[in-house]
Protein backbone atom coordinates (compact mmCIF):
# COMPACT_ATOMS: atom_id res chain seq x y z
CA UNK A 1 0.00 0.00 0.00
CA UNK A 2 2.79 2.35 0.90
CA UNK A 3 5.11 2.05 -2.06
CA UNK A 4 7.51 4.97 -2.01
CA UNK A 5 9.73 4.87 -5.11
CA UNK A 6 13.16 6.26 -4.31
CA UNK A 7 14.43 5.98 -7.87
CA UNK A 8 11.46 8.00 -9.13
CA UNK A 9 12.02 10.56 -6.37
CA UNK A 10 15.61 11.09 -7.38
CA UNK A 11 14.63 11.28 -11.02
CA UNK A 12 12.13 14.09 -10.50
CA UNK A 13 14.18 15.99 -7.93
CA UNK A 14 16.14 18.15 -10.40
CA UNK A 15 12.92 19.27 -12.09
CA UNK A 16 11.38 20.09 -8.75
CA UNK A 17 14.42 22.04 -7.62
CA UNK A 18 14.39 24.01 -10.82
CA UNK A 19 10.74 24.84 -10.20
CA UNK A 20 11.67 25.79 -6.63
CA UNK A 21 13.85 28.49 -8.07
CA UNK A 22 10.82 29.83 -9.96
CA UNK A 23 8.79 29.71 -6.77
CA UNK A 24 11.45 31.70 -4.95
CA UNK A 25 11.62 34.26 -7.75
CA UNK A 26 7.83 34.58 -7.75
CA UNK A 27 7.70 34.98 -3.99
CA UNK A 28 10.63 37.40 -3.99
CA UNK A 29 9.32 39.59 -6.78
CA UNK A 30 5.81 39.59 -5.33
CA UNK A 31 7.22 40.49 -1.94
CA UNK A 32 9.29 43.39 -3.27
CA UNK A 33 6.16 44.79 -4.92
CA UNK A 34 4.21 44.28 -1.70
CA UNK A 35 6.85 45.91 0.52
CA UNK A 36 6.89 49.16 -1.46
CA UNK A 37 3.29 49.29 -2.57
CA UNK A 38 2.23 48.47 0.98
CA UNK A 39 4.23 51.41 2.28
CA UNK A 40 2.64 53.65 -0.34
CA UNK A 41 -0.81 52.42 0.77
CA UNK A 42 0.02 53.03 4.41
CA UNK A 43 1.32 56.54 3.79
CA UNK A 44 -1.53 57.41 1.43
CA UNK A 45 -3.94 56.68 4.27
CA UNK A 46 -2.23 59.34 6.38
CA UNK A 47 -2.39 62.23 3.93
CA UNK A 48 -4.76 65.13 4.55
CA UNK A 49 -6.53 64.41 1.23
CA UNK A 50 -9.74 62.74 2.32
CA UNK A 51 -10.65 61.29 -1.07
CA UNK A 52 -7.27 59.59 -1.43
CA UNK A 53 -7.31 58.36 2.15
CA UNK A 54 -10.78 56.89 1.85
CA UNK A 55 -10.15 55.42 -1.60
CA UNK A 56 -7.01 53.64 -0.50
CA UNK A 57 -8.61 52.40 2.71
CA UNK A 58 -11.54 50.94 0.76
CA UNK A 59 -9.18 49.32 -1.75
CA UNK A 60 -7.15 47.75 1.05
CA UNK A 61 -10.31 46.44 2.70
CA UNK A 62 -11.55 45.09 -0.61
CA UNK A 63 -8.31 43.25 -1.34
CA UNK A 64 -8.17 41.80 2.15
CA UNK A 65 -11.74 40.60 2.00
CA UNK A 66 -11.54 38.68 -1.29
CA UNK A 67 -9.61 35.49 -2.07
CA UNK A 68 -6.19 35.67 -3.63
CA UNK A 69 -7.06 33.11 -6.27
CA UNK A 70 -9.93 35.30 -7.45
CA UNK A 71 -7.59 38.26 -7.74
CA UNK A 72 -5.13 36.17 -9.75
CA UNK A 73 -7.87 35.07 -12.13
CA UNK A 74 -9.14 38.61 -12.35
CA UNK A 75 -5.83 40.15 -13.35
CA UNK A 76 -5.04 37.37 -15.80
CA UNK A 77 -8.41 36.67 -17.45
CA UNK A 78 -10.36 39.92 -17.02
CA UNK A 79 -7.40 42.19 -17.74
CA UNK A 80 -7.41 41.42 -21.49
CA UNK A 81 -11.05 42.60 -21.77
CA UNK A 82 -9.77 46.01 -20.76
CA UNK A 83 -6.87 45.76 -23.16
CA UNK A 84 -4.36 44.68 -20.52
CA UNK A 85 -2.91 41.38 -21.67
CA UNK A 86 -0.25 40.06 -19.35
CA UNK A 87 1.88 36.95 -19.30
CA UNK A 88 1.04 34.50 -16.51
CA UNK A 89 4.20 35.54 -14.73
CA UNK A 90 3.49 39.26 -14.85
CA UNK A 91 -0.17 38.83 -13.95
CA UNK A 92 0.78 36.52 -11.10
CA UNK A 93 3.38 38.93 -9.69
CA UNK A 94 0.96 41.83 -9.88
CA UNK A 95 -1.88 39.91 -8.24
CA UNK A 96 0.18 38.43 -5.44
CA UNK A 97 2.12 41.68 -4.89
CA UNK A 98 -1.09 43.69 -4.73
CA UNK A 99 -2.71 41.16 -2.41
CA UNK A 100 0.13 41.21 0.06
CA UNK A 101 0.64 44.96 -0.17
CA UNK A 102 -2.81 45.33 1.39
CA UNK A 103 -1.74 43.15 4.32
CA UNK A 104 1.63 44.83 4.64
CA UNK A 105 0.05 48.29 4.65
CA UNK A 106 -1.81 47.23 7.79
CA UNK A 107 1.44 46.03 9.32
CA UNK A 108 3.07 49.38 8.56
CA UNK A 109 0.06 51.24 9.88
CA UNK A 110 0.40 49.43 13.20
CA UNK A 111 4.13 50.14 13.21
CA UNK A 112 3.66 53.84 12.51
CA UNK A 113 0.97 54.12 15.18
CA UNK A 114 3.30 52.50 17.70
CA UNK A 115 5.74 55.41 17.44
CA UNK A 116 5.08 57.71 20.41
CA UNK A 117 3.43 61.07 19.79
CA UNK A 118 6.45 62.79 21.32
CA UNK A 119 8.54 61.75 18.32
CA UNK A 120 6.24 63.62 15.96
CA UNK A 121 6.39 66.62 18.25
CA UNK A 122 10.16 66.52 18.48
CA UNK A 123 10.34 66.40 14.68
CA UNK A 124 7.95 69.35 14.47
CA UNK A 125 10.00 71.25 17.05
CA UNK A 126 12.99 70.94 14.72
CA UNK A 127 10.85 72.14 11.80
CA UNK A 128 11.58 68.94 9.88
CA UNK A 129 9.61 68.59 6.66
CA UNK A 130 6.85 66.00 6.46
CA UNK A 131 9.06 63.87 4.25
CA UNK A 132 12.03 63.97 6.60
CA UNK A 133 9.74 63.34 9.54
CA UNK A 134 8.47 60.14 7.94
CA UNK A 135 11.60 58.80 6.33
CA UNK A 136 14.19 59.84 8.91
CA UNK A 137 12.29 59.78 12.18
CA UNK A 138 9.07 57.79 12.08
CA UNK A 139 9.66 54.94 9.63
CA UNK A 140 13.01 53.87 11.12
CA UNK A 141 11.19 53.50 14.44
CA UNK A 142 8.11 51.92 12.90
CA UNK A 143 10.24 49.31 11.16
CA UNK A 144 11.35 47.11 14.08
CA UNK A 145 7.82 46.53 15.40
CA UNK A 146 6.72 45.84 11.80
CA UNK A 147 9.41 43.29 11.08
CA UNK A 148 7.67 40.34 12.75
CA UNK A 149 4.55 40.95 10.66
CA UNK A 150 6.61 41.54 7.54
CA UNK A 151 8.42 38.25 8.14
CA UNK A 152 5.17 36.36 8.58
CA UNK A 153 3.92 37.67 5.27
CA UNK A 154 7.20 36.82 3.57
CA UNK A 155 6.64 33.21 4.55
CA UNK A 156 2.95 33.65 3.71
CA UNK A 157 3.59 34.90 0.20
CA UNK A 158 6.00 32.02 -0.35
CA UNK A 159 3.36 29.50 0.73
CA UNK A 160 0.76 31.16 -1.49
CA UNK A 161 2.81 30.90 -4.69
CA UNK A 162 1.18 27.51 -5.54
CA UNK A 163 -1.94 29.56 -6.31
CA UNK A 164 -0.11 30.88 -9.34
CA UNK A 165 -0.24 27.37 -10.80
CA UNK A 166 -3.88 28.02 -11.69
CA UNK A 167 -2.81 30.42 -14.43
CA UNK A 168 0.09 28.26 -15.51
CA UNK A 169 3.08 29.82 -13.81
CA UNK A 170 5.68 27.05 -13.77
CA UNK A 171 6.35 27.13 -10.06
CA UNK A 172 6.75 24.18 -7.74
CA UNK A 173 3.11 23.12 -7.49
CA UNK A 174 2.53 23.43 -11.19
CA UNK A 175 5.57 21.27 -11.88
CA UNK A 176 4.54 18.66 -9.32
CA UNK A 177 1.11 18.46 -10.97
CA UNK A 178 2.72 18.03 -14.35
CA UNK A 179 5.04 15.30 -13.10
CA UNK A 180 2.10 13.58 -11.44
CA UNK A 181 -0.08 13.49 -14.51
CA UNK A 182 2.80 12.44 -16.77
CA UNK A 183 3.68 9.45 -14.59
CA UNK A 184 0.43 8.70 -12.81
CA UNK A 185 2.31 8.99 -9.52
CA UNK A 186 1.41 11.78 -7.14
CA UNK A 187 2.78 10.58 -3.81
CA UNK A 188 6.42 11.43 -4.45
CA UNK A 189 6.05 14.81 -6.19
CA UNK A 190 3.54 16.17 -3.69
CA UNK A 191 5.48 14.88 -0.69
CA UNK A 192 8.63 16.43 -2.08
CA UNK A 193 6.81 19.74 -2.58
CA UNK A 194 5.80 19.66 1.08
CA UNK A 195 9.33 18.88 2.19
CA UNK A 196 10.83 21.59 0.02
CA UNK A 197 8.39 24.17 1.39
CA UNK A 198 9.17 23.06 4.92
CA UNK A 199 12.91 23.24 4.31
CA UNK A 200 12.61 26.83 3.15
CA UNK A 201 9.88 28.15 5.47
CA UNK A 202 11.42 27.05 8.74
CA UNK A 203 14.88 28.57 8.27
CA UNK A 204 13.28 31.66 6.71
CA UNK A 205 11.21 32.27 9.83
CA UNK A 206 14.30 31.87 12.00
CA UNK A 207 16.24 34.24 9.76
CA UNK A 208 13.51 36.83 9.99
CA UNK A 209 13.73 36.68 13.78
CA UNK A 210 17.47 37.18 13.86
CA UNK A 211 17.20 39.93 11.25
CA UNK A 212 14.69 41.69 13.48
CA UNK A 213 17.09 41.50 16.43
CA UNK A 214 19.92 42.74 14.24
CA UNK A 215 17.93 45.77 13.03
CA UNK A 216 17.01 46.65 16.60
CA UNK A 217 20.63 46.56 17.63
CA UNK A 218 21.68 48.50 14.57
CA UNK A 219 19.18 51.25 15.33
CA UNK A 220 20.24 51.33 18.96
CA UNK A 221 16.75 50.36 20.07
CA UNK A 222 17.82 47.48 22.29
Amino acid sequence: MFDWDWAFTLEILPRLLEATLNTLIAAGAGYVIAVFLGLAFALAQRTPFRALTLGVREAVEFIRSTPLVLQIFFVFFVGPQFGVTLSPWTAGMIAIGLHYSAYLSEVYRGGIESVPKGQWEAAAALSLSTRDTYFRIIIPQALPPSLAGMGNYLVGIFKDTPMLSVIGVAELMHTANAIGSENYRYLEPYTMVGIIFLCISLPAAAMVRSFEAWVRRKLGLS
Binding site: S129, D132, Q141, G220
Partner: peptide
Amino acid sequence: GMCFQHFNLFPHMTAIQNCMEGPVQV
Protein backbone atom coordinates in the same frame (compact mmCIF):
# COMPACT_ATOMS: atom_id res chain seq x y z
CA GLY B 1 13.30 75.67 20.01
CA MET B 2 11.46 73.38 22.37
CA CYS B 3 12.35 70.89 25.09
CA PHE B 4 9.83 68.39 26.38
CA GLN B 5 8.96 66.72 29.65
CA HIS B 6 9.82 63.31 28.21
CA PHE B 7 12.86 64.51 26.23
CA ASN B 8 11.65 62.88 22.99
CA LEU B 9 15.13 62.19 21.71
CA PHE B 10 15.19 60.14 18.52
CA PRO B 11 16.00 56.66 19.87
CA HIS B 12 17.56 55.38 16.65
CA MET B 13 20.15 58.16 16.60
CA THR B 14 23.15 58.78 18.83
CA ALA B 15 23.36 61.91 20.97
CA ILE B 16 25.34 63.77 18.35
CA GLN B 17 23.15 62.57 15.49
CA ASN B 18 20.16 63.91 17.40
CA CYS B 19 21.87 67.29 17.54
CA MET B 20 22.87 67.25 13.86
CA GLU B 21 19.53 66.22 12.40
CA GLY B 22 17.85 69.64 12.39
CA PRO B 23 20.87 71.68 11.30
CA VAL B 24 21.61 69.33 8.38
CA GLN B 25 18.06 68.63 7.19
CA VAL B 26 16.40 71.97 7.90
